[in-house]
Structure formats: structure tokens, C-alpha cells
Write a protein that binds this DNA or RNA. Structure first.
Lengths: 209, 209
DNA sequence: CTGCTTTTACCTGATATCAGGTAATAAAAA
DNA sequence: TTTTTATTACCTGATATCAGGTAAAAGCAG
């Protein structure tokens, strides 16, 4: 059997790279290439597709939603997600929405080939680095960073804009002393010595905005 | 003349894609491919290279620093940066460190080819989307950002780690009062109200590390 | 309904920051 | 060589932060 394969990626070079890679594989035939999910959704309505390799970060529709939409109507199509960087939660979300595998783009050619073969054989596949990402749920959850509450986030944001306690109190219609308490709570929560360290920490962890 | 070209990218598929693309170009010959900057630095010491296409987000050494290092010893090598997403400041930083161009990976094949040809002809080149990114200098960004001096950077870094003036003075073997002066100078230079705003500003503009 | 978290608020005191000034020496650029 | 910038250092005073404690009201979840 020959697997009719579609590639979806908004980077022409990546499409070209994968095409080259897959041309080695006997029973894989690339029937179409797309730069976004919309075109793909149209295509699969009128054409037979067995395998889809898709970038998860796509314009307009993201890969997770795209995967879900496709699987609802065409559960037999094997879908493998790809991205340059990733996080545990994103990979899990992709699989939970019906994805048959996830490959990081820094994977070697052999990894790519193995994953694709295993996926069409019915397995859920991950490239090596993805495996290490998802197999560290314990240590990550142990060092899980507590979240900022809504109010704390408001205050942290204003702090990052250089506002003083009094200015923040005025902005949020709070007492000076309330803001002071929030400040102290935030610093204690993350064990930070002062606002400078706190802001650096929050920005580096994308916890503002 | 044939241009000896090296590709640096930690994504095998991207390397493969660019290889395919460049194989069409008559006077471009790919002599080597690397997954990180370290291997490249070794290579150029012993071999002639005319053109380097590099991913800006690389493991261990980032593209900006890599470009700078290479250009210091080999100013004639044409270096083009690439990435999937980018910001104005990063592109500018890359060019300021000697880069001859910047291409977003979602560029079309034609864009890639044109940029490469123009770059080896001596131009500074940008792919279409990069042009739109850099041609929007917001009123804030219009005023070019003055650089931190070495000492100021040291102090700003320690501030971002939550150190107090006294601790910084001890760390750098300076007087408390000297550190205080530096702090004031930095705040004045960027017109910031306090360290929190300063750290946020510096981090957002990638001016620490 | 009953805990748990969040948000609000107050008091005090030690310490740090910020803003204003000045100025000598060294290094780099013009 | 002259000028500018960087780095070093000191003084003072007003204001802000940080750390300790306490506590009530509101909202949410078990």
C-alpha cells in the first residue's frame, strides 16, 4: 500500500526538506503541500489522504485545533505534529486532540523515518527530545512554579512599569497598605529578595502578559 | 567564481531544505553543514568559506554572538541569519554585529535565492517579512537605545539577580558609593524611575546576557 | 456548611533607594 | 593633543522598600 501524504508548514524550506527526506521512503507519496490549515481542510474534503505531517505553529489555525477538526471527520488519517521548540503541555494537548505523534524539527533523518513508519503502523510516536520532554512530569511538577493571582499579576505588571507602591494603589483604587501586602506576598511566594529580581524572574518565565 | 557555502542549523530538515534550494544555484556550492556554532568555528579556521547561512537560535552559542566572533576574524565571509520568528531588535542586533542579511524561514524560494545573490554581491538583504518588521520603528524605538557600558552591564546583571547596592559593591570590589553612582547613571540614561522598570526594559531589549 | 485562598487593610521599624550635588583619574575617541 | 566618555568616589536628605506581625471580608471548592 502507498500512503498518500500531505505536508503542512508555513516554511517553504521545511516543506522542501521533508519532501526530500520522504522521497527515500518507498510507500510514502507526497500528494500535496500546504502553507496553512485552511487549504488543507478544503483539500481533504475532496481527496483521499492517509498521512499528514503538520507544523503545530501555523498562521490562522493552530495545529492542535486543526488536528482536532480533521480527526472528527477523518479519524483514520494519521497526523504527526512538528515544531521547533515545544513544551510538555503542548505535546500532550496535541495527542489528546487525536495526534498520532510529535516530532521536534531538530530530530535526525532516521528519527523522522522511524517515527513515520511506526505511526502508520498504528503507534503513537515521539522523537527522542520529545520523549525527554514528556517523561519529566514529576520533577517539573515538583518544581512547579506557583501562579500569580489576578491581583498579584496586576500589581506585578505595574511594578514592571516602574510604578511605586503609592502609584499602584492610586491606579487600582486600593490602599497603600494593601498594595504593600500584595508586594510582600509576591516576594515571599517566589522567594525573591526585591522587585528587581522578581521582575527578572517573571519576565524570564513569561508570567507577565 | 564559486562561493563555498556553509549551513548552520540545528534542524536537519531545514538543512536538507536549504541544500535542495541552493543546489539550483550555479555558483553556490555547499561545502559543509553544521548543527551548532562550535563545529563551525573550528571549521573556518582551517578551510575557506565565502558564505554562511545560519539559524539565529542555536544551542550553546546564539547566532548574534557567533556572527560577531566570525566577522572579527573573517570579515570577508558573507553571513546571512535566519529564524522562524523575529523581532526588530534581534534583526538589528544581528546586522550590527556584522550580519549581511536576515531571512525569515517562511520566505519563498525566490526570496531566498534573491537574497543570497544580492548578499554575495555586497548588499545587506532582508526577506519581505523582515522588511516589514524593521520598517516599523515605533516612536519609542526611533530614539536609538544607548548601550550599557561594561561596568553598567555588570551592575545591571547583579541588580536583576536581586542584589542590593552593598552586595554588588562587595561582589565587584567597589565602594558602595561607586555602585550608587552607576545605578543613578543607568537610570538616568534610560529615563527609568527605578530598578524594576529598568530590569524589565533591559530584559525586553535583550540587553542582559 | 466549612475550610481554603484571595483580597483587602493596618502598624512599626530598620534598611535601601533615589535624586541632588561634586570631582579625580583613566581610557578612548576626535 | 584635546576632548569626551567611563570608572571611580564622596556627601546629604527625602522617600520607598522590606520584613515582621495581625486580621477581617469575600469568593470558591469540597
Amino acid at each position: 500500500m502507498i500512503y498518500k501524504t500531505v505536508i503542512v508548514d508555513d516554511h517553504p524550506i521545511v516543506i522542501s526538506g521533508i519532501s526530500g527526506l520522504l522521497s527515500d521512503l518507498e510507500n510514502i507519496k507526497i500528494v500535496e503541500k500546504f502553507g496553512s490549515g485552511i487549504a488543507l481542510l478544503d483539500y481533504i474534503e475532496d481527496n483521499t489522504v492517509d498521512l499528514i505531517l503538520m507544523d503545530v505553529f501555523l498562521p490562522i489555525i493552530n495545529g492542535v485545533d486543526l488536528c482536532k477538526t480533521i480527526k472528527q471527520k477523518h479519524p483514520k488519517i494519521v497526523i504527526i505534529g512538528m515544531s521547533s521548540q515545544s513544551e510538555r503541555s503542548l505535546v500532550m494537548q496535541f495527542i489528546q486532540n487525536g495526534g498520532n505523534g510529535y516530532i521536534l524539527k531538530n530530530a535526525s533523518f532516521d528519527e523522522f523515518k522511524n517515527c513515520i513508519y511506526k505511526a502508520i503502523a498504528g503507534e503513537i510516536v515521539f522523537s527522542e527530545e520529545v520523549k525527554t520532554i514528556i517523561s519529566q512530569p514529576l520533577s517539573e511538577e515538583l518544581e512547579r512554579i506557583p501562579a500569580l493571582s489576578r491581583r498579584e499579576r496586576d500589581i506585578a505588571l505595574l511594578l514592571s512599569q516602574g510604578k511605586s507602591t503609592q502609584e499602584i494603589a492610586d491606579d487600582l483604587f486600593l490602599s497603600f497598605l494593601t498594595v504593600q501586602t500584595h508586594r510582600r506576598n509576591i516576594l515571599q511566594k517566589y522567594k525573591m529578595k526585591n522587585v528587581a529580581e522578581l521582575i527578572a524572574f517573571l519576565l524570564k518565565n513569561n508570567m507577565l502578559n
